[in-house]
Design a protein around this nucleic acid. Structure first.
Length: 219
DNA sequence: CTCCCGATAT
DNA sequence: ATATCAGGAG
């Protein structure tokens, strides 16, 4: 895809969705530790589900040291609705232990250090860096970013690492955090996985998927 | 590649 | 019943 096309898509999506971050369907957090834990919990689960366990979880374990001393089974009970609760419990306690032992209880602000934490990959690290510290180290490629960017034709790859490379070279660094938010917003509201609502799409004229599936000579 | 694992929409 | 949801580890 041409950078000019990418820029136009960004512009249209920005005007469409920029007001929507007052909308409730995103992770809630009050500090770097919370966004780290909430993002680990968000794997394969909706943000709403993760938000629903936030109160109990941080009331019981408000900081890395209390979480590091937590009883695994108690964490499991609290976060069960988010799915993968055994692995996630182990990960968030393990990450908390590492924060206490190696980072003085402070969530690190570099990709290199963040991905050393159990349960933290590039996607989660990118979210933490951007949300907690305002750092654009890369672009978080989740299931929405993956699907929407592929359909639009911003990438021909399917692996998150390659998609991130394609997207970061397509957009200026200042836009990285925004394009993540915009692709997710669009993926949720219009370009959903099962049946994308191309008729309601504000960027269909710029979309590869639309061209290939709604072209005049289809069928 | 498989496994982890519950909630929700269709 | 099945697919999918702000993935990561083995």
């Amino acid at each position: 895809m041409l950078k000019d096309t990418a820029c136009r898509i960004f512009s249209v999506l920005f005007n469409q969705y920029i007001r929507e971050d007052t909308n409730l369907n995103f992770l809630e957090f009050d500090n770097p530790f919370q966004i780290l834990i909430m993002t680990i919990l968000s794997a394969q689960t909706t943000d709403r589900t993760v938000n629903s366990v936030k109160g109990r979880l941080f009331e019981a374990y408000p900081d890395p040291s209390s979480m590091a001393d937590a009883d695994i089974s108690k964490i499991e009970e609290i976060i069960r609705p988010t799915g993968f609760y055994r692995a996630k419990s182990k990960n968030i306690r393990g990450a908390s232990e590492m924060l206490v032992r190696e980072y003085e209880g402070i969530v690190p602000d570099s990709m290199e250090e963040l991905v050393k934490l159990p349960g933290v990959g590039r996607k989660t690290a990118n979210i933490v860096l951007n949300h907690a510290y305002g750092i654009d180290a890369g672009i978080a490629v989740d299931t929405h970013v993956k699907r929407v960017s592929f359909r639009l034709g911003m990438t021909d790859n399917t692996s998150p690492d390659k998609i991130e490379r394609d997207l970061t070279s397509l957009f200026p660094k200042e836009a990285w955090g925004k394009i993540n938010f915009l692709l997710i917003s669009h993926g949720r509201s219009v370009c959903d996985a099962k049946k994308p609502a191309c008729d309601k799409c504000c960027i269909k004229e710029l979309c590869r998927y639309y061209r290939e599936n709604n072209s005049p000579d289809k069928e």
